[in-house]
């Protein structure tokens, strides 16, 4: 029972994080929402009994790609649309 509740909470969090990534105009907040999405999907992989994929998703999705996106935002502009 507690397993199903945890599972449904994580799936709902996935949808909410993906929608937030789409709706934010502040790109830094969008990147943080994407990192939260990666963290939740790594938990989901762990629940579905794929710890290998969970480790690589947590390291690359939540760690390295967030750093690369933040470097790209520093090099361009923080807000969407037009010059900063």
């Amino acid at each position: 029972m507690i397993y199903e509740i945890f599972h449904i909470l994580i799936l709902a969090g996935l949808v909410i994080a993906a929608a937030l990534t789409f709706w934010f105009r502040d790109l830094l907040a969008a990147v943080l929402a994407a990192a939260f999405f990666s963290f939740l999907i790594s938990l989901e992989f762990y629940i579905l009994q794929a710890p290998d994929v969970a480790i690589s998703q947590a390291a690359i999705g939540a760690g390295l790609s967030t750093a690369i996106f933040i470097i790209a935002i520093r090099a361009t502009g923080r807000f969407e649309g037009g010059a900063p």
Partner: peptide
């Protein structure tokens, strides 16, 4: 145990990124 070359290397690269930041 679960893991392997790619996962471990990615974890170490995350640590290097922490130092770089």
């Amino acid at each position: 145990t679960p893991g392997g070359g790619f996962q471990g290397g990615a974890v170490i690269a995350t640590g290097v990124a922490l130092v770089i930041v």
